[in-house]
Simulated scan of single mutants.
Amino acid sequence: MADEKKTSKKTDTKSKKKSDKKKSKKNPFKSIAGFFKSVNNEGKKVSWPNAKEVLKNSVTVLVVIAIVAAVIYVIDLGLTSGMKGIKQLAQKETTTASETTTKATSDETLTENTTEDTAEATTSAE
């Protein structure tokens, strides 16, 4: 009797495993159809706005977009003019520095030329 119980338990577990395999293999078309049915049911639950609400919301969105665009334009304009100012300032400083260097070089040249001319004139006179 104990052997019979053991064998019947083994057969029951085997039949359960087979039935589990059959249950796990569902028809994919039924699953897809079930998905679209649930989508349709959820769509029916949605409260859709009327034409006045849509128009009001659209105008609100357009006004906000216009305000944000104006703010971005002003910021861009400020940054652009600031960068131009910095660039001009850098060019002025470079020009001033090169003029100073040129003046110093020309002053030194004049001094050297004057010294050389004086030395030559002295040697020639002797």
Rank of each mutant, 00 (worst) to 15 (best):
Asn57Trp: 04
Ile72Met: 03
Gly85Asn: 15
Lys9Arg: 08
Lys56Ala: 13
Glu108Ser: 03
Tyr73Gly: 05
Gly85Arg: 13
Val54Leu: 02
Gln91His: 06
Gln88His: 06
Lys5Gln: 09
Thr95Lys: 13
Thr100Ala: 15
Gly34Asp: 11
Lys103Ile: 01
Glu120Cys: 04
Phe35Ile: 10
Asn113Met: 02
Gly78Gln: 08
Leu62Met: 11
Glu126Met: 09
Ser124Trp: 07
Thr7Met: 12
Glu112Cys: 07
Ser106Pro: 00
Ala125Met: 04
Ser31Val: 13
Ala69Tyr: 00
Lys45Val: 04
Ser81Tyr: 07
Lys6Arg: 09
Asn40Val: 07
Phe36Arg: 08
Thr123Ala: 12
Thr100Ser: 14
Val54Trp: 03
Thr115Pro: 02
Glu93Lys: 14
Pro28Ala: 00
Pro28Arg: 00
Thr80Asp: 03
Lys30Met: 03
Glu112Met: 06
Ala121Phe: 06
Glu93Arg: 13
Thr96Val: 05
Gly82His: 13
Ser8Asn: 09
Ser47Ile: 13
Phe29Cys: 03
Ser8Lys: 15
Lys87Phe: 06
Glu126Phe: 06
Lys30Arg: 09
Lys14Met: 08
Lys10Asn: 08
Val71Trp: 02
Leu89Pro: 01
Glu120Met: 05
Asn113His: 03
Thr122Val: 06
Ser38Thr: 01
Ser38Trp: 04
Lys14Trp: 04
Val46Asn: 08
